[in-house]
Amino acid sequence: MIDFRYHIVSIIAVFLALALGLVVGASALRGPLVDQLKDRSSQLEKDNQRWRDQTRLTDQLNNYDGQVVDGVTPQVVEGRLKGESVVFIEAPGADDQMRAKMADVVSKAGARISGYVALQDKYLDENQLTTLNELTDQLRPTTVEFGSDDSPYDRTAVELASVLVTQQASSVGPEDPAAGQVLAGFKTAGFLNYSGQPATRATLAIVIAPAAASKDKNADAENKALVALPLALSGYANGTVAIGNADAASEGGMLKAIRDESKAEGHVSTVDTANASTGRLTTVFALGYATQGKTGDYGVGSGVDGPMPTPVPTVLKKK
């Protein structure tokens, strides 16, 4: 990663070199002024090289740290999620690579992955809200009830949560035909896609935030719609963790919206370093914490509880 100061130094060096060329070319100035410009230009070139060297060294150290963490991760996470199952839900704009790398670590921790659900842009289209609400009513299983104050997105989130996760291990495994019909209905209408067998239900949920914080004028409304899903999942699952990068924890980001939502406190955990090896490890710890009824906000963003759960949750032996 090229340091910002490197760009500044480069720009200054270019302008000084330009000035030097003009002075020499015009032959208007000689002697001390030209020598000073030459010395200054030479010093800036040296500073520029030093910044490049420091940036390269930092990148090498970061890569080294990542390789070490990746190397020990299988041993560290082994058995931590044994007997659990996990479903992945991606918000529009989520990083597919983050999902793939996180799924690999979750599998190494012993969990079964039921499937992957990806919300589409249409899900957040305010012009499709009436259609989404009507479809939610049409597909609603008889066992699902909505609150009188629930918004259309709250209702859809509750319905999706009811077919994706469960707190009962006995309900995990065989695909529920009713759950399959709900997911198929939303998929056919273009509100989501899925792969795997998410209708077999999972006991834990990982929600992946958009990779970039929204700068759109509708950012608050969109984040409110997205936050409804982890909130609903937390009511049906044994644990829900929302993950993303540092940008997702900044203003306009989904993780920031979750952390600012009072209803999420004590119910949904967040990790804003899931694009890094350490963050993926933290996510597994957060899932383990969730099975013990504990939550937290972890990473480097404002207001986090720490870099990871402390103390690190112990491995619970499953029969």
Rank of each mutant, 00 (worst) to 15 (best):
R201I: 10
E159K: 10
E159F: 06
S171A: 14
D220H: 11
A161Y: 01
R155K: 15
A225G: 00
A213R: 02
N218M: 07
V163P: 05
Q128L: 02
A225T: 06
L226I: 00
V144H: 11
L160M: 03
P152S: 08
G180W: 14
Q138N: 08
D216H: 09
G190Q: 12
P152H: 10
F191V: 00
D176F: 06
P230Y: 02
F146C: 07
A189F: 01
A221D: 11
P152V: 14
D154S: 07
D137Q: 14
N133H: 12
T156G: 04
N223I: 05
P141M: 12
P177A: 12
E175A: 08
V227R: 07
P174M: 15
D216L: 08
S214K: 00
A199V: 06
D176K: 10
L229G: 03
T130E: 09
R140D: 01
V207Y: 13
V182T: 05
D150S: 08
D176Q: 10
Q181F: 08
S148K: 12
S171D: 12
D154E: 09
R201V: 07
A219C: 04
N133P: 01
P230I: 00
L135G: 00
V172A: 01
L183F: 02
A179N: 12
P210N: 07
K187H: 02
Q168E: 12
R201Q: 13
L204S: 01
G185S: 07
L129F: 01
K224E: 12
V158W: 04
E126I: 15
F186L: 09
A189M: 04
P198S: 12
T130R: 15
I208V: 09
E126M: 14
T142A: 15
G173L: 10
A179L: 06
P174Y: 13
T130Y: 08
S162W: 14
A179S: 15
T131F: 06
L160H: 01
A213T: 03
F146Q: 05
K215M: 09
K215T: 11
G196H: 11
P152C: 06
V182F: 05
L139I: 06
S171T: 14
E175H: 01
V227A: 11
D220E: 14
T166A: 01
Q168V: 14
F191H: 03
T166Q: 02
Y153N: 12
A157W: 05
A179F: 05
A209L: 04
D137A: 10
L160G: 01
A202K: 00
S171C: 07
L192G: 02
G185A: 08
A209I: 05
T136A: 09
F186H: 15
D149C: 00
Q167W: 09
V227W: 05
L132P: 01
R140S: 09
D149T: 14
L129E: 12
N193A: 13
A219R: 13
P177K: 13
Q128G: 04
A213G: 03
Q128E: 12
S195N: 11
L139M: 07
D137P: 01
G185W: 08
A169H: 08
A184C: 04
S171I: 10
L139H: 05
F191W: 04
P174D: 14
P198I: 03
S148R: 15
Q138G: 01
S162F: 08
